[in-house]
Amino acid sequence: MEQALVDITLILDSTVRLAVPLILACLAGLYSERAGIVDIGLEGKLLAGAFAAAAMSAVTGSAWLGLLAGIGAALLFSGIHGLASINFKGNQTISGVALNFLAAGLTTFLGQSWFHRGGYTPQLSGDQRFNPITLPFANELREVPILGQIYWELISGHNIITYVAFIAVPVTAWVLFRTRFGLRLRAVGENPKAIDTAGISVTLLRYQALIITAVLVGIGGAYLSIAQSAGFNNNMSAGRGYIALAALIFAKWRPGPALLVCLMFGFLDAFQFRIQGQSFPLIGEVPVQAIQALPYILTVILLAGFIGRAVAPKASGIPYTKER
C-alpha cells in the first residue's frame, strides 16, 4: 500500500514535469488560433526557444538571460509567421511548416558552428539552469503520511517555469473570457470583419496574439533545455509542438480543458516510461509504441467527430483583406 502510494506520486510527479512544455505550447497556440492564425509552427518555435535559451545560458551563465533569449527566438519566428500570414496574406499552414524546418535546420547548424559539439550545447549547471524550488514547510511536512508526502514530492520541488505554466492557465482563461482584449481576440478569430467595422485593427490584434504566443512557447522551449534538461540537443522538442496542437484541438480551444488534456498526454508519456518491459496479467507486455501513438490516435478519433466535435475558430487560417 505504502509502495503503491509512492509509485503513484512518482508517476504523477513525472506527469507534471512532462506536461509543462505541452501546457505552455498549447496555451501559446490557443492565443494565436483564437485570433484566427493557425500555428503549425509551434514545434519550430519550441525548438528555437529551447536552443536560444540553452545557447544564451551557456554563454552568459544566467538562466534568466537564457529565458529571455528563448522568448526572443520565438518572437523572431512569430514575426516571420506574422509577416507571411498577416502582411503578405500567405498560407499560414505553409508558413508554419517552413518555420518548423527552419528551426530544425538552424538550431543544429548554428549549434555546430558555435559550440562544435555535434549540435549539442555545453552542459549547463548551477545558475545556468532553473533549479527546483522547495516550497515553504515542504521539508518539515515530508514525514507526514500521505498529504505531507504528496506536498513534498508532487507540489513542491519543481522549477519556477512549472509554476508559471500552471498559473498561466487561469490567467489565460481570465484574459480570454473576462477582459475586453480577450473578447476582441475571440472576435477576430471568428469574424474579423466585425472587428474591422468596429474600428479596431485586425492586423494589430493578430500581431498581439502572436506576441503572446511567442512569449509562452518561448518559455516552454526554455523549460526543455534549461529547466528539464541541462542543455540543448538535436530536435529536443521531439514532436511536442504537434502534441500541443493536438491537445489544443482536443480541448476545443479552451484553457481549462487544455490543461487537463496536456496533463493526460503527459501522464501517457510518464506511464509509457514506467511500463517499459513490464508484463501485465491478461494483456501481457504493452508495446511502448502503442502508448506513444495514443495521443495522436485519440486526436484523430476526436477530429473525426466520433467523440464530440472539435470546431475551430471560424476565421482561422484565412488572411484578412480589408475591402477597398
Binding site: A84, S85, F88, I94, S95, V97, L102, L106, S113
Partner: peptide, 22 residues
C-alpha cells in the same frame, strides 16, 4: 557547415515560394 544547412535552405524555399510566394 553541417548537413543541416540543407534543412534550413529547404525551410527558406518553403517560406519564400510557398508561404510568401506572392
Amino acid at each position: 557547415i553541417t548537413r543541416e544547412m540543407i534543412v534550413t535552405i529547404q525551410a527558406l524555399v518553403i517560406l519564400f515560394t510557398g508561404a510568401m510566394g506572392d
